[in-house]
Computed example of a mutant assay.
Amino acid sequence: MPRLKPFLDAQSPILTASGLLFLRVMAALLLLFIHGLPKLLNWSAELQRIEDPFGLGAPLTLGLAVFAEVACPLLLMLGVAARLACLPVLAVLLIALLVVHPDWTLEQGQFAWLLVALYGGLALTGPGAYSVAGLFCRSKVA
């Protein structure tokens, strides 16, 4: 029974830290592999088709999107500046949903809205104890 105690305790720091680690890594991998790396690896093709809703120019717009979809998920996975790393991702997602694709139904935008929920929650909670930032915190996970 002692091994099950952390899983039966609703206030378990181990479960909270493990849950935040799982959410961080999964949210980061989803964004990185589905959106970020394809943009980075196919830069020239992406320049031709990226939306530029604010008239910044395709290279800058794509650069900002790649930063939000590659660099920020990597920071989030590590738990380095995790709350701040969520903000560019949320900005890109909300611009895509509300400015670029306002005609999308909830069903068409469900992946983006799911990422908004994940990154918004992580922006509020922070990375948790199992992170690079958690290594430097004084609170210990029992």
Rank of each mutant, 00 (worst) to 15 (best):
Leu106Cys: 03
Asp103Trp: 02
Ala142Leu: 13
Phe136Ile: 14
Gly79Cys: 06
Val100Tyr: 03
Gln108Gly: 00
Thr105Val: 04
Leu93Ile: 07
Ala96Gly: 10
Pro38Gly: 09
Gly19Ile: 02
Leu62Gly: 05
Gly79Asn: 03
Lys39Ile: 10
Val99Ser: 10
Ala82Trp: 07
Asn42Asp: 12
Leu31Trp: 06
Phe22Gln: 03
Val25Asn: 00
Leu93Tyr: 04
Gly128Ile: 05
Trp104Pro: 01
Val132Glu: 05
Leu98Cys: 08
Ser12Asp: 08
Ile50Phe: 09
Leu41Gln: 12
Val99Lys: 14
Ala123Pro: 05
Leu97Lys: 09
Leu98Glu: 10
Cys86Asp: 00
Glu51Ile: 06
Pro53Ala: 12
Leu74Val: 09
Leu97Ser: 10
Ser131Met: 02
Ser139Lys: 13
Val99Leu: 05
Leu93Val: 04
Phe22Lys: 07
Pro38Arg: 10
Arg49Tyr: 06
Trp104Ala: 06
Ala129Ile: 02
Ala65Val: 14
Gln110Lys: 11
Phe67Cys: 10
Val66Trp: 03
Val70Ala: 11
Gly128Tyr: 02
Gly121Pro: 01
Leu15Glu: 09
Ile95Ser: 05
Pro73Glu: 00
Val25Trp: 08
Lys5Cys: 08
Leu87Val: 15
Leu21Cys: 12
Gln108Glu: 15
Gln110Arg: 14
Thr61Tyr: 04
Val92Thr: 11
Thr61Cys: 04
Glu51His: 15
Leu87Lys: 00
Val99Ala: 12
Thr125Pro: 03
Val99Ile: 12
Gly36Lys: 07
Trp113Thr: 05
Phe7Gly: 10
Ala91Asn: 03
Leu4Met: 15
Leu114Tyr: 05
Gly63Thr: 13
Arg3Trp: 12
Ala96Tyr: 00
Glu46Val: 12
Phe111Arg: 02
